[in-house]
Write a protein that binds this DNA or RNA. Structure first.
Length: 861
DNA sequence: CCCGTGTGGTAG
DNA sequence: ATCGCTACCACACGGG
């Protein structure tokens, strides 16, 4: 995996956010995309929102004619606001009490509007209340056009962003989000690979579902026979008919006016049909998933096709039989999860989080990266405290090495499969169409296969592709050897990732040159460069010896140049950029070859006529800054001239900790969603403790299926096209308490009132971190800082404690003791990359350096 | 000017 | 089938 590893594999959800609607006349509206409401901390609003979820959950039997619609009622109406609210929500719609300018409201309901309001609401569709009433009566969504309050005309046509001339003052010529979305990598990949599935061009507009239209869900719906038995994952049953029926169950009409005066508590728990352990109102501890909804283990007979059909085409409450009710998202998921394979790989499996993180390459990449960074920074700190830091001679030549494995995952996995080395090989989880390619060897690249590509595309490019599985253990092992070799070199080391590092070897090289490293002395410069090359070469040899894999090395006089030199070095080589070559070398690169420049900035540059780095030099700085912003503009101005002020090994302290999952999220009711959020918070709390920090601000991240996205995205159990919603809350006091975090997170989730079946991704993040108080002082700081660096081989440890079975209340669990029996006396060098799940070293944090976890544990009774 | 929140973008 | 994470920076915008 090179420096460009998975360049495209992420940044997925974020660029698919804006979606505009085509109404019945094909008129374009810029839907205000981002939902939520202005101030969820205000209790009253909160409650109003919460009701929606409850009400919606109870009325899923109603024809969900307003699905995809989010309404706001303005002014006095007949029927009343409350009645309209109830009608809308109980028929699948969303409702917002307040407009905050960037909510996801699609329609404003009003009997009439003042001229001022007309302007204010210009970007919404304004309809009369009768639209709601008549639609419910008709059992289907009627064309809203017939109920317009404002006449057709300029008033409702807004946002002429395409017209560049409109935006002038802002100095940055900005395109609408939608434009960016349409040309994003993700969108284009979707089109390329799956243009037929996710958004069929003939798909009905979201506001006019065609109820009778068959849905393309037959195959997942009807399992031939259960290939995975329920006890493949003990502790949970497969989703049975009971769940399915529960999801579709008739629920008595919700009381539209829950009392509003119990302000002391978070909110009213949703009323339920089946007996569910009630949430404790005083203690914010939520019941675990399996205790809530999942029935005891029973072997269930899968539904027969007839039964599915009965459900699928169930008549919607007395409608004419031609009018079949489309399934709600919850019903859809319930049916989907009938397939045991699906259930196992989704939130229906209580072990899902652990299982998922075990298999996710991106999760591994992130954890590895954080661990390595912490370890190397701790090492650097220790070094600088023991030996006087010599200040760098200003103006001296620098020699920075950027070292990187060639197609890391593939190379490591190929050692077990030497017969494939000359054949095209990729690393992926499977060979299904949506499987992502994490790494590909050079023979595969010759076919045009790239990291991050989906299997479908890769197979089109190369039909004889060999797919090898991940071997995370082996990657850690190879990385350990890699870092052993790097750390043996005299210089300043900075970890980039599991397979990538920087070393500043300036001091060594200048010493070899025999000058002060400033003056222009041909001989000295030559000797310096030769020294750098020789260091690079010996590192490559060392890593090859120990791992059997090739690394490449880029050498330059700053990080930027080392990085771009690496491109030229690959594969299995090294390249040094001499000072006199810098401008020519950089100039011929495309702008997107620069670090920090990818599709988005690349496109902005393209719009102002810049394709190559040398083109940047033609622009004055002001132009660049006005197009890209002050920092980015300045940075690129510098980069194009070979300037990079960043130093190797700069210390950065962690500012956030988070846990998110945006795959396999398929809920059939609100309870499951909330339980899952709690599990995420448990995980987050665990990570906070591992990092010895607590957080004062929490952010909840939500991905919800876009209104125009199909129920089943092209990627199996993927999130597909989504809207994203982030909301943060500042806690009174910093905490690691999973109950507190969970309470806040669930509160935010509820406040949005999303249909649980439409959730596609969830995450929780802590910011405003503070160091956790160290345990009672014990060992000397010196000793602890020495211990801090040990990369421990995890002792043979029992499986990690299941997420929800822990009853520990203490900050440090005693199980750590068992895990790491005799720690203080092991002077091993770096022995293995710490297992991210069980082993952590102390993180750098502001304030006093906390004692290492182990040390603290040791001294507890 | 500062600050805060929310969103976008990027990299590994 | 499939495992689309996570930290960090920059920016826009709104309010003092």
């Amino acid at each position: 995996m090179g420096s460009r590893l998975e360049k495209n594999s992420d940044a997925v959800r974020k660029r698919i956010q804006g979606h505009a609607f085509d109404d019945e006349e094909g008129e374009e509206y810029e839907g205000s995309t981002f939902g939520g409401f202005s101030d969820y901390m205000r209790r009253k609003k909160l409650k109003l929102q919460n009701l929606d979820a409850d009400l919606r959950a109870q009325t899923s039997q109603n024809p969900q004619i307003f699905r995809g619609i989010v309404a706001h009622v303005n002014g006095y109406t007949q029927p009343s606001l409350a009645d309209l609210h109830k009608l809308i929500v109980s028929h699948g719609g969303g409702f917002l009490q307040y407009l905050d300018g960037k909510t996801a409201v699609t329609h404003v309901i009003a009997s009439q509007l003042t001229p001022k309001k007309k302007v204010e609401f210009a970007k919404y569709r304004i309809v009369k209340p009768a639209w709601i009433v008549d639609s419910v009566k008709a059992g289907k969504l009627l064309p809203w056009n017939d109920y317009r309050v404002v006449d057709e005309g300029v008033k409702q046509k807004v946002l002429g962003f395409e017209n560049g001339s409109v935006v002038s003052q802002a100095s940055t010529q900005r395109r609408g989000y939608r434009d960016q979305t349409e040309t994003s990598w993700y969108t284009s990949q979707m089109r390329h690979e799956n243009g037929d599935t996710e958004e069929p061009p003939e798909a009905p507009p979201p506001f006019a579902p065609e109820p009778g239209k068959p849905r393309e869900m037959q195959s997942p719906v009807i399992p031939a026979s259960p290939a995975v038995e329920a006890d493949d994952f003990p502790g949970v049953s497969s989703i049975g008919e009971a769940d399915l029926l529960a999801a579709m169950e008739d629920v008595p009409d919700a009381d539209a006016s829950f009392d509003e005066d119990d302000d002391g508590e978070l909110m009213r728990p949703p009323p339920r049909l089946d007996p569910v352990p009630a949430r404790s109102q005083s203690k914010p501890v939520l019941p675990p998933v399996q205790s809530a909804d999942v029935p005891p283990i029973t072997q269930r007979r899968p539904l027969t096709p007839e039964e599915y059909n009965a459900m699928l085409w169930q008549d919607a409450g007395g409608q004419p039989s031609a009018q079949k009710k489309p399934l709600t998202a919850e019903e859809h998921n319930a049916i989907l999860l009938q397939n045991p394979h699906m259930a196992k790989s989704s939130t229906a499996n209580p072990d899902f989080i652990n299982q998922y993180y075990r298999e996710s390459r991106l999760h591994h990449l992130s954890t590895w990266k954080a661990d390595l960074k912490a370890q190397l920074q701790a090492r650097a700190q220790e070094k600088s405290s023991t030996q006087r830091t010599r200040s760098k001679a200003p103006g001296a030549r620098r020699y920075v090495l950027h070292i990187d494995f060639d197609s890391f995952f593939a190379a490591v996995s190929l050692r077990q499969n030497p017969h494939l080395v000359d054949k095209p090989v990729v690393i992926a989880h499977g060979s299904g169409p949506g499987s992502e390619i994490a790494s590909c060897n050079y023979p595969a690249r010759k076919f045009g296969v790239k990291n991050g590509m989906w299997m479908k595309t890769a197979l089109e490019l190369c039909s004889e592709l060999n797919v090898l599985p991940y071997d995370f253990k082996a990657y850690e092992e190879a990385s350990r050897h890699f870092y052993d070799s790097i750390l043996a070199v005299e210089g300043v080391v900075q970890s980039i990732s599991i397979d990538e590092a920087l070393i500043d070897v300036s001091e060594q090289c200048i010493k070899a040159g025999g000058s002060d490293g400033k003056g222009i002395s041909e001989g000295s410069i030559y000797r310096e460069q030769e020294k750098a090359k020789q260091i690079a070469s010996s590192i490559r040899d060392a890593v090859r010896d120990k791992t059997g894999c090739e690394v490449s090395v880029g050498i330059g006089n700053n990080i930027l140049l080392a990085k771009v030199a690496l491109r030229k070095a690959k594969p299995a080589g090294q390249h040094l950029i001499k000072p006199e070559e810098v401008l020519a070398f950089l100039g011929e690169l495309e702008v997107t070859d620069l670090p920090g420049v990818a599709w988005s900035i690349g496109k902005k540059l393209e719009e102002i006529g810049v394709k190559y780095v040398k083109d940047i030099r033609e622009l004055n700085k002001e132009r660049l800054i006005s197009a890209l912003g002050p920092k980015t503009g300045q940075k690129l101005w510098d980069y194009s001239r070979g300037i990079d002020k960043q130093e190797v090994g700069e210390q950065v302290i962690r500012k956030s900790v988070s846990a998110e999952i945006n795959w396999g999220i398929r809920f059939i009711n609100q309870q499951q969603a909330e339980d899952f959020v709690q599990c995420l918070c448990d995980e987050l709390s665990k990570r906070l403790l591992e990092n010895l920090v607590k957080g004062k601000q929490m952010t909840m991240k939500i991905m919800r299926k876009a209104a125009d996205a199909g129920m089943d995205p092209p990627k199996n159990l993927g999130h597909g096209k989504c809207d994203t919603f982030n909301k943060s809350v500042v806690l009174g006091v910093a905490t690691t308490d999973k109950a507190v975090i969970g309470k806040e997170a669930i509160s935010i989730l509820r406040s949005y009132g999303f249909s649980p079946g439409e959730l596609r991704g969830l995450g929780v993040q802590m910011q405003k971190l503070e160091p956790l108080k160290p345990m009672a002082a014990s060992t000397s700081t010196v000793e602890s800082s020495q211990r801090r660096l040990q990369f421990k081989k995890p002792a043979a440890v029992p499986a990690t404690t299941p997420l929800k079975t822990t009853t520990e209340t203490e900050e440090f669990k005693s199980s750590h003791k068992k895990t790491r029996p005799k720690l203080a006396d092991e002077p091993d060098p770096i022995e293995e990359i710490a297992n991210p799940k069980k082993e952590r070293t102390v993180r750098l944090m502001e304030g006093p350096i906390p004692l290492p976890l182990e040390t603290s544990v040791k001294h507890r009774p």
